[in-house]
């Protein structure tokens, strides 16, 4: 039926959908390659074929099996889960706040998480959880707290995009100041730990932590995807979205809950990783447009790809050394992004 007239709106729609589907499929394939490389690289380099057989539990060498399953795979998959969370939350925030610079980093949520982590590291705050989880739980709670503060500060004035952005930026400075104060009073050992946490690292990943991050993300995904059309409408301006019958206040609140939980889970275990949440949505937007049915999963995929690639780079840039992932994402990502923005216009149509 689509072949009656290739220029009909229906035909255009089907072509557009097919092209976007192909872009997502390509991204997934590249991600698979990245994860394989990520699992292959490290102090003991493994051939991709060895990785593949180990993943299928066919490795003859128990050592290889242990390296892949106990050490490398949780890290490689954590990069995917955290990258996806940062990418998706970045896209939601940029849409809801109508601001291309919005990300969990720029509106103080990462700063809140950093403060929460530092609080436990420096003061050893007593939380009723196992010690290994005290820092992540505190980071998570403060990320959620930061999100609530953004809402409480920006909300009474109608929770418009502007008030929320301003509230977020004010909050970022507040948490950074409090974090600096903690660092000022910290012992040298604690200070080193805090700084290292702030760099971000995937190396602390375990299957349990991975399950928590992935579980939260997967549980939240249907919730935010149900709002995909409403979020798309928001791109046409608040007035038009309201005229289309969308309750803006509720939509913003649901979006912020998603952002709080997903960002909180992501940064809690790996520390603050900037740049991914900012850039992944832009990458996805260039390829997929702003129909949020595509943009949200696309941003998650782009974030996963970026962080997975950064994880590979962090192990290979200086052989033998492991550069903190948070540094690599910016060092490698910024030139790449600048090149991308300067060399491509919209690839969409």
């Amino acid at each position: 039926m689509a072949d009656i007239d290739a220029t009909s709106p229906e035909a255009i729609w089907h072509r557009l959908s097919a092209r976007r589907g192909a872009a997502i499929a390509t991204g997934l394939a590249v991600l698979l390659v990245c994860v394989t490389l990520d699992t292959a690289t490290g102090p003991a380099m493994l051939a991709p074929s060895v990785v593949a057989s180990a993943v299928m539990r066919l490795a003859e060498d128990p050592m290889v099996d242990a390296i892949v399953w106990s050490i490398r795979l949780p890290v490689a998959l954590m990069a995917v889960a955290v990258g996806a969370a940062l990418g998706a939350t970045g896209a939601v925030m940029q849409t809801v706040l109508n601001n291309p610079l919005a990300s969990s980093y720029t509106v103080g949520i990462s700063a809140g998480a950093g403060f929460g982590a530092a609080l436990v590291i420096v003061l050893g705050a007593a939380l009723p959880v196992p010690e290994a989880f005290a820092v992540p739980v505190s980071a998570f709670l403060f990320a959620a707290l930061a999100c609530s503060c953004v809402w409480l500060l920006g909300g009474p004035r109608g929770a418009t995009a502007e008030t929320l952005v301003l509230a977020g930026i004010a909050l970022m400075f507040l948490f950074q100041a409090m974090l600096a104060a903690l660092q000022f009073i910290a012992s040298p050992e604690a200070l080193q730990q805090v700084v290292f946490w702030l760099f971000g690292s995937l190396q602390r990943a375990t299957w349990t932590k991975l399950a928590v991050v992935a579980g939260i993300l997967l549980a939240m995904a249907p919730m935010i995807m149900r709002d995909a059309w409403s979020l798309t409408a928001l791109r046409l301006g608040e007035d038009r979205a309201a005229a289309l019958g969308i309750g803006l206040l509720g939509l913003r609140l649901r979006a912020l809950v998603f952002v709080a939980l997903a960002t909180g889970a992501a940064v809690a275990f790996v520390g603050t990783i900037g740049f991914v949440g900012l850039v992944a949505p832009h990458l996805a937007r260039m390829l997929l447009g702003e129909d949020q049915r595509w943009l949200l999963p696309g941003s998650a995929l782009a974030g996963a790809l970026l962080l997975s690639a950064a994880s590979v780079a962090s192990k290979t840039i200086m052989p033998g050394a492991l550069i903190p992932i948070g540094i690599v994402t910016a060092l490698v990502g910024v030139p790449f992004f600048a090149w991308l923005v300067l060399s491509t216009r919209r690839v969409l149509s």
Binding site: R235, L236, R285, G289, D291
Partner: peptide
């Protein structure tokens, strides 16, 4: 409105 949105 909507001139800035990357929507078809």
């Amino acid at each position: 409105t909507g001139a800035r949105a990357a929507l078809t």
